[in-house]
Amino acid sequence: MEANAKVITKDNSESKRNLNLKNAPNPKKEKSSLIRNNASKYIFILPAFLFVLFFMLYPIFYNIVISFQDVSIANLRGEKPFVGLANYVEVFQSEKFLISLKNTTIYTVSSIVFQLGIGFLLALFFNQKFPLRNFFRSIMLLAWLTPLVITGNLFKWLYDVDYGVINYILVQIGILSEPINWLGQQSTALIAIIITNIWIGIPFNMILLLSALQALPTDVYEAAKIDGANKFQSFFKITVPLLRPAVLVILILGIIYTFKVFDIILIMTGGGPVNATQVLPFYGYELAFINFDFGLSGAVATIILVILLCISLIYLYMVRKEESM
């Protein structure tokens, strides 16, 4: 506050000259000079603001508009009739939507639980000091660095029913009596994709948690040790509560990122067999670019947006609660 006030008084002399000419009343003078003083700051954010406006806000807005219109390939150039909530009604009534919503939820929840769980354990492991620790830590990141197209195709071959390594190993050690067509049957396709995604996501979670762990103050642990706390006590009473904010952020980012799954589905199953791996983003894509039904697709995209907004709101609420505690 103080700094601001200083700037205002300093600039008053300059603005007075203008205002005298216009004979403006006094309170306005302060306000206008405030804006002018901050103008340079606004100019700095202008490019970013324009970018967000044109490339993010406008498409989102346009998408919402389309979701209330009947847009197909036939009237893409002409009049697009307003149909109210008809698209939403149709989407909610289609069985594919319910299947994709269910699949997306299963996919997101199980991916996040295992990614975070295993990532956390690995983070604890790498938080110890041992030889070659940094080397192994960077090796772990490879899974995250590999482009999804490659990972997807790789796992497609690993899961293959005739030549896949996974089936071969499971049969050799006697867990399976005959190979399973992992991606080719409805009961296992989603599980196979979830496992792939868990593998991809572990290192990302691990690195974030590890950096949070390393930022924890050491003196708290020392104090606890002096007070006679054992390892479990200091883990559950110190590490876990202190990590809460970091875990919360990772959790929310993870949910949003995982909910938008698209590429891995496209590469590995194309939503099949039948609808076993149909997820919301892929369903929206299919509606727009295969069936050319842009209105319905817009409705699906808007529903995804609303769901993710709700999740973000929950996050904001929790953060506020955390801060007030």
Binding site: K156, D160, D162, N181, L183, G184, T269, G272
Partner: peptide, 11 residues
């Protein structure tokens, strides 16, 4: 079902 087309045909 005869086994003359691979089960994997689905992918």
């Amino acid at each position: 079902n005869d086994g003359s087309i691979s089960e994997n045909v689905i992918n």
